[in-house]
Write a protein that binds this DNA or RNA. Structure first.
Lengths: 343, 343
DNA sequence: CTGAAAGCGCTTACAG
DNA sequence: CTGAAAGCGCTTACAG
């Protein structure tokens, strides 16, 4: 049975070590001005007493929270079917945990609430920095965060000026490789089920698609814009396949839509890959296990998370951090692509 | 151009209102002992000055963090393919945000790290309470949290004694309904691809499966245990279907495995639902859009999140909270189930 | 109903 | 190299 331990504070450590509180603090934080022997002694006493400085007291003095924030503005459906964030967050945590930093997560329904959430996080001093994902055209968060003075790292490079470091996985090569792969197989009518054009990565994949067609000497392909949701991917596929001259291949802006597209093709009696080739983007776990397995582009969300977290910590420590360009996403060829049937 | 605002604290509000700091605090927190007129005046001055009490200072005085924690111990693959948490979290946030509470999220690789994470969260005073998900047999977290004195709410009822309120969605009726549905269609060889038996909901769905077979007067069915991952679901399906007397129907413990099973059936040339019926669990978005669309059991993770958050807040406020039994998950019949072919 | 003061547990100039 | 004190911005007994 434990006796109720009297709370051990910096005060009792100082007393026991025979020094002032200030000196304990200096020793703990590796500040100059403490003789080596004294420091060792203080740290020994601290360990012996099992003392950890109070995060709350420290936060009040230093005006920092030792936590980082991620606010996600997506409708729940899209969020739920997209495995990007769980993996990304796992990567982030693997860096933050050893540093004693926590992650504060907000999931909000829309962009307006999102901006308000950043203001609240700052007003409450909940976080010392944030991850900015799902970059938008002329993203309002960049100037807001700059104005609030909140350190940030962006996932990808914004299309406007930004004072923040960017950690980027270039998605252009992967999309171009997808199209080139299809072109090489002999496809000439290739369509694109694009993501939301309010999102930069949606726009960029779309542009890469167009550029790749041109590079392959093919005519411009049909593009259907969606909100990245499974439902929209399914609808877009139906629309494309029920035309007079349907495409023989479809490049999807993400895997969930591609998987929905696969289902729709089955439903319409269009055989994949014999009559229709399909490619996705992200290489989520499902890709390997649907039938036929999905040709897709493999990003590495966990690595992205680790790198973004490191960059943000560096920024907060040094006041600046370099942009990081991670290896570009790569094409992974599986069973959902094949030469087009003769028609 | 803004002038750098001099920081407005409780002190300046008090001064301007002509009262003491203490009184401002009392007025703010609706404590008795402030005359109505004085309170109104104080609050007006506060609003006028745009004052919000400092969360950090308040945290230090009250020894609370005004944040709640969720720590998830899953391997990243399983986590990524399971849309439960994003939806659950969206539900949690919808309750916390208006209350000015934040959610601290930890994703850890294993159970040991998980326990350590709870200790850290308490040691650092990061959270005032936690959500306990993925309950295990004889869950070590229950006694740990009790010992740490950290308020908690469990998702589902633990199988041991627990001092914490439980918010439960009974999954037994849904699984039993699945089996009954298949039995009614005429299936007699029904198998179960179970989740991990270290997880209570895995165990419970498995028990429900067995009970339902018995209730239908059918012989015990084959059960293959998995770790809930897409890969394991795929493997289990292959094993079941490549036997001499394969089952004519498979009940999966979650949707991702069922979707992988669908893919494997296709790969093996087994037609669904003609030669094989399949049911899932959770009703994730994908279910509607694979082909054939998946018969499954619909839980409501967002509602669960809202309810768990409310319960935890009540517990922290009142020192106790009632268990909540949410409506049981319901069977949703779609195209992946049909009468068995004659053999 | 109200005021003055101590306390939460650290960090950080300022003296010596 | 070290100590004593102020400060971070609240809350909460304690007096009156």
């Amino acid at each position: 049975m434990k006796s109720t331990a009297p709370k051990v504070t910096i005060e009792v450590v100082a007393k026991k070590a025979g020094v002032s509180k200030g000196l304990v603090s200096f020793a703990l934080n590796n500040r100059p001005g403490v003789s080596p022997e004294t420091r060792v002694r203080i740290l020994e006493v601290a360990k012996e007493l099992g003392w950890k400085p109070s995060l709350r007291a420290r936060s009040l003095s230093t005006q920092r929270s030792y936590a980082l924030g991620l606010v996600i503005a997506r409708n729940p459906d899209v969020l739920a079917s997209d495995p990007f964030f769980p993996s990304f967050i796992a990567g982030v945590e693997s860096i933050l945990a050893p540093e004693g930093r926590a992650l504060v997560l907000s999931v909000v329904p829309d962009e307006e609430t999102e901006l308000h959430t950043y203001r609240s996080l700052v007003a409450d001093g909940r976080v010392d920095g944030v991850f900015v994902s799902d970059l938008r055209h002329n993203d309002a968060r960049i100037p807001l965060l700059a104005e609030l003075g909140l350190p940030a790292v962006t996932l990808g490079r914004p299309d406007g000026p930004s004072p923040f470091p960017a950690v980027t996985v270039d998605d252009t090569p992967g999309v171009m490789a997808s199209v080139a792969h299809l072109a090489t197989l002999g496809h000439r009518r290739i369509a694109h089920v694009a993501g939301s054009s309010t999102l930069l990565h949606g726009l960029r994949r779309r542009a890469a698609f167009a550029a790749a067609l041109e590079a392959a000497g093919l005519p411009a392909g049909q593009t259907v814009e969606t909100d990245f949701s499974v439902a929209a991917g399914s609808d877009a596929t139906r629309r494309l396949l029920t035309q007079d001259h349907p495409p023989t291949a479809i490049v999807y802006a993400n895997d969930p839509m591609a998987i929905a597209g696969l289902g729709m093709a089955h439903e319409l009696g269009v055989r994949v890959p014999d009559e229709l080739s399909i490619t996705g983007y992200d290489d989520i776990d499902f890709c390997r296990y649907v039938y036929p397995p999905l040709t897709t582009v493999s990003a590495a969300p966990m690595v992205w998370g680790r790198s973004a977290a490191s960059t943000l910590l560096t920024l907060m420590e040094n006041g600046s951090a370099d942009d990081v360009d991670l290896p570009a996403a790569r094409l992974v060829v599986r069973g959902s692509t094949a030469p087009p049937s003769d028609r």
